[in-house]
């Protein structure tokens, strides 16, 4: 079943007017259309500045598109009454790249994970404690960690807490915007394994936004390539592609063994 439909989304940022000169409008997204099925992981890859994150922000409702429609679970997110929107939005969560800046540094891990329940549910204190315990368990963290502050956790642990918070309200879709890009390789691997396990167990859909084609290939069922604010092609299941933007991303994948170094890059 279709979970999310993105229809002809456009976004322009107005440039600042100067004296008598009117500000021009710079296109960031142009005519972006795609849909995402329930339980699917859709990858979006592109270079820095290609508009991937803006697209993620529009889907999350952090920014409004200039034109276009966004239909999530059959509801138009930018036209529905706000009460309905709020109930729908809880099914739509996010994990960002900078794990530390996604927290209030003055809240403990317990307070961070309790917050979604305070906002959306009417649980007693004991129930909330039980829920937080389950969430920590889900992302393989110790209950004892709940008393710590984010600054006391390592980058990998922080990212696990971010995932736990995103899971709190049992969402249908999580937008992962460069969620593993700032972690080292061993951590990337463990977080990917965690995300894949959770996806299966909870029938989650992911929108996996990244500049790293290799990680995206590893994670995603389908991959869309973005360039200059436009979706330029979908990379096929068999890894076939035509567009130069996809070619550039493929060429940038580093070898996994020194034997695979490309001859053309090495003059001698």
């Amino acid at each position: 079943m279709t979970l999310l439909e993105v229809k002809n989304i456009e976004k322009y940022y107005a440039q600042r007017p100067f004296l008598f000169k009117r500000g021009q409008e710079a296109p960031v997204l142009e005519n972006v259309t795609f849909s995402l099925q329930e339980g699917e992981c859709l990858g979006i890859v592109g270079q820095s500045g290609s508009g991937k994150s803006t697209l993620g922000r529009i889907i999350l409702g952090i920014e409004r598109p200039t034109n276009g429609e966004l239909i999530f679970q059959g509801v138009n997110l930018y036209e529905a009454p706000s009460k309905e929107k709020k109930m729908i939005r809880r099914n739509l969560q996010a994990v960002f790249q900078n794990s530390y800046h996604s927290f209030n540094p003055k809240q403990t891990i317990f307070e961070i994970l309790e917050e979604p329940f305070l906002n959306f549910e009417h649980f007693s204190k004991a129930e909330r404690q039980q829920k937080v315990r389950e969430l920590l368990d889900c992302v393989e963290l110790e209950w004892a960690m709940a008393q710590n502050y984010p600054s006391q956790l390592s980058g990998g642990q922080q990212q696990r807490v971010n995932i736990a918070r995103a899971l709190a309200l049992k969402p249908k879709l999580i937008v992962l915007d460069e969620a593993i890009s700032s972690l080292d390789m061993i951590l990337q691997k463990t977080i990917i394994e965690l995300l894949q396990r959770l996806q299966k167990e909870l029938q989650l859909a992911y929108l996996f936004i990244s500049h790293d084609l290799q990680a995206t290939r590893f994670m995603s069922d389908r991959i869309l390539v973005m360039q200059h604010g436009q979706l330029v092609e979908e990379i096929g299941k068999d890894g076939t592609y035509q567009h130069p933007a996809s070619q550039a991303l493929y060429n940038a994948i580093l070898p996994s063994h020194p034997r695979e170094r490309k001859k053309k890059d090495r003059p001698n």
Binding site: Q47, H211, A248, A252, I253, R266
Partner: peptide
């Protein structure tokens, strides 16, 4: 801190300097 395409360019550049 760079995306993969820039990363590749910088590494190719280091290789060029070395040779």
């Amino acid at each position: 801190a760079l995306d993969t395409i820039n990363q590749k360019q910088v590494l190719t550049l280091f290789n060029q300097i070395r040779s």
